[in-house]
Design a protein around this nucleic acid. Structure first.
Lengths: 252, 252
DNA sequence: AAGTGGTCTAGACCACTTG
DNA sequence: AAGTGGTCTAGACCACTTT
């Protein structure tokens, strides 16, 4: 009944899967910018030549995956990596007693270097290729609590300079998304305990060998492609890493 | 058009929400036992007097929440807290190099005690009320890696003895579910770094003051009611706590 | 009032699993 | 072959937000 579709052999095999892929492609290609509103569901369903229920099924999935956001009465939008998103999805450090708080981020260093084996594996590249290495200190309640060491492949961020990074108006992931077209849609974190090294000791104002939480995060964009490798050292004297146990799904 | 419904003023306000509640009630009341197969969707939709799409929407939600599981061609089942479920949802410790592995659990102690303030807050009870305190050592690859200290309210597990606990055929959550009708459906974990104390040092075979990962978990059943408070001390020399960052939902 | 997403219906047909 | 869940249709009407 549908002779006009072009390539329904996208992902999985069902119709709504292929519509998901088409919407994602429009985001990746820049047709749908971060924060942009999608056409309404009736229009979208007729444009894709499917029933509205099928269109909604596709959008349901993308909302569940954190790629789109629906607001009844207003519209459906491409997710923006703003502060709210950051706090909701990517910042799990929370005061043991008291409110959740947005951290103050201070740049310590911004360097070009060659990827170590560990970084190369995490970022899916060859060891020795150029990476940008950034170190930040994050403060909560006025005190330095987290030391973040970020590694990103230089070829993904060709024009990024220390000044651009430092003067970004929003979050780091917002910079990736708006300036470089790389939308972070998820990540995997491996958490362990480690003794504070000299750098952490100095910038977090703690004794060397104090137990810290080490979080190794690989953040990825569509197609499970790695965007950033980040090692966070967290002083958990007054803060916890909070995680919710629920039945996962994972896809895209 | 529907004059036979009894109490659609259950949760939220929509029809599918009230059907969710009815199914959950049948699980809680024991009409639907863990592992049991639900009637097929056509029967269920006519029993609840709704369209099949509405019935499916309700079941969709319960599947996403980890309460039901669908298997195409076979049926829909009440989730059983077996080993697969445990590994999938509740055991996030993974070897840094190598396969994920089911731990060998060894009982260290099983005692009756009075709830500390911390335990009382976690379990939603009064400090000083009776709790059961259980200590386990979990081994991976033949070596002791995790020390688990469990606290549960005695009034929720009236007939539980050391022998019953020790001789359980399956997982701990399976015991809670089948013997005591308490289905764990989720939990919140607060993770931090801590130095090994004497008990951890002794049973994990490590130096005192070695950095360990401490995981404080409150596991809950329907209605966000706390079932268990568990503190895990993990030797992360060879293992990580693995967590996936995705857009959460949370409900029930 | 107009425009958006949210709920619900009443089917048809497809894909998968099992006896 | 019979039974299960999965996909898809083509609407109607409700709830919410904005102008």
């Amino acid at each position: 009944m549908n002779e006009t579709f072009t390539s329904n052999v996208a992902r999985g095999s069902s119709l709504y899967q292929s519509i998901k892929s088409k919407i994602v492609q429009e985001i990746q290609s820049g047709i749908l910018m971060p924060g942009a509103m999608l056409p309404n569901e009736r229009d979208l369903s007729s444009r894709f030549d499917v029933a509205i229920g099928t269109l909604r099924r596709a959008v349901d999935d993308l909302v569940a995956e954190g790629i789109l956001i629906r607001q009844q009465g207003r519209g459906t939008f491409v997710v923006l990596q703003d502060r709210d998103r950051f706090m909701f999805q990517y910042f799990r450090i929370s005061a043991r007693q008291g409110q959740r708080e947005f951290p103050l981020v201070k740049l310590l260093s911004f360097n070009k270097a060659r990827a170590s084996i560990e970084e190369a594996i995490a970022l899916g590249m060859q060891a020795g290729q150029p990476v940008l290495k950034i170190v930040n200190v994050l403060s909560l309640g006025g005190k330095p609590v987290i030391l973040d060491k970020i590694a990103i492949a230089q070829h993904s961020f060709p024009s990024l300079t220390k000044e651009i990074f430092k003067n970004r108006p929003g979050t780091i992931y917002e910079l990736y998304q708006i300036q470089f077209g790389l939308t972070v849609i998820g990540g995997v974190e491996r958490v362990r305990a480690a003794a504070a090294d000299a750098l952490a000791s100095e910038h977090l104002g703690i004794a060397q060998d104090q137990p810290l939480l080490q979080i190794n995060r690989v953040a990825h964009t569509f197609g499970n492609q790695a965007v950033e490798y980040r090692i966070s050292m967290v002083n958990t004297e007054e803060f916890d890493y909070v995680s919710h146990l629920h039945s996962q799904s994972t896809s895209v």
